[in-house]
Design a binder for these strands. Structure first.
Lengths: 236, 236
DNA sequence: CGGAATCTTGATTAGGTTCAAGATGAGTGG
DNA sequence: CCACTCATCTTGAACCTAATCAAGATTCCG
């Protein structure tokens, strides 16, 4: 049963904590991890304000993390997928500062934080790896920040391009992709309105960069997409 | 000579790494730290692409970190001040992803990364503290992200309010503040043009929130400033 | 098949950028 | 100490991008 897969057999282990550990160490890590039953679309992994009990490694699926503004509006801070770790942002205050919700059926490994700390005191490579993964998290937050400073077109292009690149790294198709998030959610994340997202997708289709069928995207000109995401020029 | 101040005697130690350590542990930390001569306005602490050799703790002054876009434009990612640690974002790739430049005369403690890792293998509290500080860094990156999604007025109000709050925590005046950064730099950081920053400051003065004399700001109605930074309402 | 959610497209509006020109301020050398 | 210069800041006017408002179309799902 895939719910009980071990780190050794997990395809995403090479993007996850085990990537820096030897077999013996992976076994030890494996023994503290709790395999959860799949999360279904809409289910919460944790809520803002909950006490930090565990970090969560995503095996498959996609999770959004978000806060609610004083005005009651949802504010999406990140989309996490295979190999990503949730919960680093909770270590400071020992409470999760954001809520986490599955956008699709998702398999998640629960890594009890105390056990992890205990284990990391015995395994130098694990200590180093935790720092590395948190640093990577900071890197990607900074990249996200720079997306919001671009214009709308470039922002969406970057968003799609990064999704595609991540998938390619994971050995998935670099040309085809089913979005798990709505236009509302993409817009919320990028700081744009859902109408703008819709218009931009139309525009991307017209310019032959991609095709859409419902939420399924097929990339037709990934070079152009890459250039659009790196530049602010008028490619459209 | 203040250049050689020890952690024990450093006023900012309670916001810095030592805050979680006992005296014996602080001594050990102290022994690996290199006190540098002051950085002067405009001097670089490190440049994007340099190998990670050390983390840097800011004792006083202010440092901006930034990248250069493919278009050759500076992109400011953060302003660091007393108690902040620079370099966490370099642990992932072992190279600094941003450059760091002093905006004012700044005192900085250099913490060689290898020594720090070695020391942290012996001191559990130090391990925990490093995770905590990196987590705090992630928290503040996420707050910054949410600033950019606000409107310009709220964004600048939040920027000033946070500067003031940080100063208050450090025991400095909560009503008076000399900005070390230009309008161009503030605008760059907030994703706004320098003209907009200038207009917003004028507007803040007219509405009696603060007064400006050159780059020196005096807060006149900090409640209003706080409300403006938390809300999107029309307070102006 | 029906109802709700999501997406598309158009028209209008608003917030912030850009361009432009003058004012203020800080630093430098006589 | 003053005059000169360069950088920074201020303010106005025109423009532009993306938000908002509105109304249909499509898709999803029970």
């Amino acid at each position: 049963m895939t719910t009980c897969i071990r780190c050794q057999d997990c395809i995403s282990s090479r993007f996850c904590i085990p990537s820096a550990l030897n077999n013996y160490e992976i076994n030890q890590l494996d023994s503290i991890i709790i395999r959860r039953t799949p999360l279904h679309r809409g289910q919460l992994l944790f809520e803002r304000g909950d006490k930090l009990t565990a970090l969560y490694a995503i095996r498959s699926g996609i999770i959004k993390s978000y806060t609610i503004t004083p005005r009651g509006k949802e504010q999406i801070t990140a989309f996490y997928s295979t190999g990503d770790i949730l919960g680093f942002d909770a270590i400071n205050t020992l409470r999760y500062p954001t809520s986490a919700q599955a956008l699709d059926t998702s398999m998640v490994c629960e890594i009890p934080f105390e056990s992890l700390e205990r284990l990391s005191s015995k395994i130098p490579a694990l200590r180093r790896q935790l720092l590395r993964l948190m640093s990577r998290h900071i890197n990607s937050d900074q990249e996200n920040l720079s997306i919001t400073r671009k214009n709308a077109k470039t922002g969406l292009a970057t968003f799609i391009y990064k999704l595609i690149c991540t998938r390619a790294q994971r050995g998935l198709s670099p040309t085809s992709l089913r979005l798990s998030m709505s236009h509302t959610e993409i817009g919320n994340y990028l700081g744009l309105s859902l109408e703008t997202i819709s218009r931009l997708f139309s525009s991307l289709q017209e310019s032959g960069v991609l095709m859409m069928e419902g939420r399924t995207i097929t990339i037709q000109d990934s070079d152009k997409l890459a250039r659009m995401s790196h530049n602010n020029e008028d490619f459209w």
